[in-house]
Design a protein around this nucleic acid. Structure first.
Lengths: 213, 213
DNA sequence: CAATTTATGTCAGTCGATGACAGATGACAA
DNA sequence: TTGTCATCTGTCATCGACTGACATAAATTG
């Protein structure tokens, strides 16, 4: 890898770290892009060449995680039922977070703190998750032999997203605590959902049960 | 009601209508606050006395709906299980939308179109729903005799929100079509969830089932 | 009508974000 | 090493969202 690319990567990381630090100490709204740029000693214009917006720098890690989650889902064996595959992908993601080096782990923790204390960033996170949800629906639909517009794949992914979001809801920042909370929630989900609920329905059996008395 | 308040209400409605019209024809990003204000013949500064932001004017109807949903939930009888109460509240909301007069219905339709074609507004909608989710969790927790931080009320509301969001996902704007889609999804949810899943667990029965074979 | 309250307009200014242009710097070949 | 090229960066100008301060106009109240 050339000097140029290494330099770019360093600048990018420095911008993220400086931004997260400032967001944590002064608050997201009270921090200006100029201050972030000054901290890294680049011009404000350069900041916007690395990140599309002030929000973008705060959510870049979250965006990475969403991409990772989707990749883990795609890597799950076809033999797993859709919801199981989603849960396993989530467990993989949490394992990766726990095994990250200190710099990465610190970045993750600061990111979590900032996002959860800033409504605007919480909204941005939702947007990212919603975008990823469409891709997960496509994958689940494929596994079910259904279309992305069908209700079942949408429902399966929606339940999964619910559980995942409930995990992150409170002030659960430590990946270990988060993993524990995920397991509790998945156990609750398993108690609440019928066996086979996330598997293809036998054609011709359960469909025409609409006729009222 | 005095002249002053009536005038304010008219200005507010005019701002919403003008904004939605412009958003629909020119797009949300391409529309400036100055244009909206000019359309209603008020100063841009006045616009910001009615709405906190450009986003706010687009989401004011959605915010009203969320407040309404919460009110309908609170009005459901205590005898209903939490998930049933949530679903009935949602049905009430859709009924109100279907029974609205033409001006209100038109506003609703335009709002839906604009929101679903603008990522920023989709994110804002998510934020509103997330905020309302906290209040719904509080109400459901109360009905379950649990705390808002407990997993069960969070899970119940999360599943409900998932279903509700899946309703609005596609280009389903007409309230009648939306109601039909809701019923289909609720039927799917009912097939997928165990009876009594959203009711208080008998103390001492289902809890210690963690011991592995 | 007079006094008070409240809504509105004007002005100035901050901050996020983008386009245009020029200068600096790393990549690469001769 | 040197020259050329692509790319990165800084500077400048500009737009649009948003806010505070102050003056004006309007409605409410007595």
């Amino acid at each position: 890898m050339g000097l140029r690319e290494r330099k770019k990567q360093r600048t990018r990381d420095a911008l993220i770290d400086a931004a997260l630090d400032l967001f944590l100490t002064k608050g997201y709204e009270a921090t200006t892009v100029d201050q972030i740029a000054a901290e890294v000693e680049v011009s404000p214009r350069t900041f916007f060449r690395y990140f599309a917006s002030k929000e973008d720098v705060a959510l870049s890690l979250t965006a990475d995680e969403q991409r990772l989650l989707l990749a883990e889902l795609a890597a799950r064996p076809e033999s797993e039922s859709p919801f199981t595959a989603l849960c396993q992908a989530m467990r993989s993601l949490l394992r990766i977070l726990r095994e990250a080096d200190d710099a990465e782990a610190g970045r993750y923790l600061r990111c979590q703190k900032v996002v959860h204390s800033t409504p605007a960033l919480l909204a941005g996170t939702m947007r990212l998750i919603k975008e990823n949800e469409r891709r997960m629906v496509a994958e689940v639909a494929r596994r079910l032999g259904a279309e992305p517009c069908d209700l079942q794949p949408q429902f399966v992914v929606a339940v999964f997203v619910s559980v995942a979001l409930a995990c992150f809801d409170e002030r659960t920042q430590d990946p270990a605590v988060l993993a524990r909370r995920l397991e509790d929630l998945l156990a609750l989900a398993e108690r609440s959902l019928c066996p086979g609920w996330d598997q293809p329905v036998r054609s011709g059996a359960a469909e025409p049960v609409a006729a009222p008395g």
